[in-house]
Design a protein around this nucleic acid. Sequence first.
DNA 1: CCCCCCCC
Length: 613
Amino acid sequence: MSYELTKGAIQTIMTGGEVVCPVLQILGSKEISSNNPSKRYRILISDGVHLNSYAMLASHLTPMLLSGELVENSVVKITNHVASIVKNADKGDKRIMVILDLEVIMHGAQVGMKIGNPVQFDPNQQSQQPIPSQPAPQASQPKPQLQQRINEPVTPKSKPAFNGYQNETIYNSPKTTKTHPIASISPYQNNWTIKVRVTSKSQVRTWSNAKGEGKLFSMDLVDESGEIRATAFKDQVDKFYDMIEEDKLYYISKCQVKMANKKFCTLNNNYELSFTSETQVIPCVEEDTAIPKLQFNFASLSTIQDAEAGSILDFIGVCKTSGDVVSLTARTTNRELKKRDITIVDRSLTAVTLTLWGNQAEEFRGDTHPVVAVKGGKVSEFGGGKSVSLLASSVLQVNPDIPEAHRLKGWFDDLTEDAKFNSVSSRSESGSGGKWYLIGEAVASKVGCGEKAEYFSTYATVMHVRQERCVYKACPTPDCQKKVIDQNTGQYKCEKCNREFDSFKYRLMLSVDIGDFSGHQWITIFQEAAEELLGVSAETVGRLQEENTSQFGDIFRNVTLQPFQFKLRAKMETYNDESRLKMSAFSVKKPDVNDRCRRLLSEIRELSGIEVR
DNA sequence: CCCCCCCC
């Protein structure tokens, strides 16, 4: 299949002319800096006549490359670009085409070949390059946007609407505003002005260390092409802190450009800005809807349970319950901290604990069940559950005026009293059993076979409970569970407490084989969970074992072939140099039939795509 | 020039 590329577009663009939405072919890509997770790519692009290797993708388009959506030979429509000038002392200035947006017209695999026989574009020989005979849609032709505007009524005060970067930058159109896209910022060229929206501004923070002390605040800046973090120190804090407001537009120039430390900044940019005494910040009075507002990319709360600990997510939910503010001292830094845990829920019927810190913890009011939207929250893992914690860089919005918030609030207000949520966090009411697996699934997917313990839930039937050594005599000390040594003198010795007692307490440690149609598994169940399973106290089990063999046997017969829901902990344990997977149940409950049905329905829905009511 | 992001 052959495609019409916009022949001549590269020469026009690279010599400062305008081409509207050229159709070009991607012939290769190369990572620019490999030591950085926020990857920027240089690409080789062709218009069928010329090849241009001085082209790069704005970083927000990197995912298209990584996902395989954009591959070699792909034919694309460049819907937005700039030709940025990079100053170069020895060889003269060089133009780089920065692709700000594109649409894939045909996937590379389908195109399957290089179109035409393009030659490398050489800016120094541009006059000798043959001009393509085929006409291409170029700047000389009226732009559809401009034509439209001619027909619009012109009021004396009206200013031309934003018409893309082509006209906004000095490169393509010297007659209009001189601003540069964030995507073109690099340490090699510092004579720029960006027009940006401040999407978030941090509080002022002070530091004091061996190198000195000071204060700073940072802000996240976005424009159509990308995003970048900027930080102001000391004097610049006094100069700019009050003037900079979230959601407002500014012209910013003369900053220091540094490599961003990806450890501390999750913005999609390899660079960050530091304000200097030269830095200029000019508020832009007029709203420009072309510059994006704070963008959330909400993940369903149900995805948090499988999210990697440490990952950064945007999410939105309704505050169902709000805990009190708790003071604590950070172990590592000895810092005094205040935190508040709240539980948020969304339409996936998932409940997640969200931890707020400092001022945000103190100022939060949860009693009216506000909608809480978070950008850049951190997933953390505790006790087998997942929760989310706010970072200093996170943005928290309470009852934001966005459609999703209104929808969620409406949904929540219509919930019935008995609505049940699946909590993925360990500290909340229900405790976390992690994912639901069939026994065979858990075994096949090697749950718990890694470094760390893993937690999962299952519905299973008790196949067998081993009666031998199911109960033992333990130290009577409340928190000690050590098996005592019967001295046969009426005294019981605990080697852990290093004491003799004249009494003991019975404790259960059951070996139970549980199974479903997919497989079975021997698990260990301790005290409370074991009492829950057997329906009798450890004390009774111990007493009947000694006094009444028949009734003792009944205890086990009564639960055999009965179904339960288990919350299990699976972990590799080494014993006598042999490593094997151990599973234990930390929670055993009679099946909740409603919950069971809900879960099955949602699985059917997920597997079949059919809405089941 | 910061770079802490905490706790059970």
